[in-house]
Design a protein around this nucleic acid. Structure first.
Lengths: 138, 138
DNA sequence: GTAACTGCAAAATATTTGCATCCTT
DNA sequence: AAGGATGCAAATATTTTGCAGTTAC
């Protein structure tokens, strides 16, 4: 497991550091998406606020994690699937925000439905954001 | 036209002020969604930054405009359709972000497709965000 | 006249940058 | 040893709050 995490870094030409391992581990262990603040508090302030910003940005750039558009425009992050790579995100899955507990889930196994857009527009990527109540808060 | 704008304010128990009329007019005249910064520059710095924050928040609260979740998590606003009211947004239309010109459109006449979510989850609202190239940048 | 709205100042937050030090390779 | 990563300090940017003056009704 630890190995797998280190491999992710290695495969992306990133140095293997404690910070990065810990942050990646958080994402792997978390069923839900994480915000900068989540990571800061989960880490117990072990590492610097600035380091978190830079680490998250690096991971997004490398295609290891992706940002999730949220209704309240807070920035959430979650692990990318294999399809992603540097500069090319393909996280065409559904994101679910629970209005009760505030948790954001990536519903990887829910396919994005087809969207019909007007003539003259072309689609590169589709994000679907669902608000509602999750299974734990039901 | 001016009347219509004033009516929107009146119908929502808001005082009719120059600021609010001008900001609402911007939304009505704009095909695309606007950010706080857009409004600030469009206004020619006529009104205070703080007033814009407060006006936008008031409009969102009243259901006159809605926020749009964007991929880069910048905050965009657009007019709501009639279905919205105080505390109850129903902007179930597709939002389109042009990757070339950065414009966000509300595609009011494109219906939200059905999304199948896992057992135990219930849906209140669905947002669809499409990235691509718009008709003007084609 | 009264309540609501606005603008200014300032506080609180969030994010970015520079640089010296430390760690990975 | 060299380059990348980190932490601290500080610069910027963003958003919120308090309050006094102004405006709508």
């Amino acid at each position: 497991m630890k190995e797998a995490i280190a491999d992710i870094l290695k495969n992306n030409q990133l140095s293997i550091t404690d910070n990065r391992l810990k942050i990646l581990e958080m994402f792997q262990h978390s069923e839900k998406a994480l915000s900068h603040a989540d990571i800061e508090s989960l880490s117990g302030k072990l590492f610097d606020r600035v380091t978190i910003y830079r680490t998250l940005q690096t991971f997004v750039d490398k295609g290891i994690i992706h940002t999730i558009p949220t209704a309240d425009n807070s920035v959430m992050y979650a692990l990318c699937k294999e399809a992603c790579s540097e500069g090319h995100h393909h996280d065409d899955h559904v994101h679910f925000l629970c209005e009760t507990c505030g948790t954001t889930y990536c519903l990887d196994n829910v396919n994005i439905p087809e969207v019909n857009i007007p003539k003259g527009f072309s689609i590169h990527q589709t994000n679907v954001l669902v608000n509602g109540v999750c299974k734990n808060c039901k």
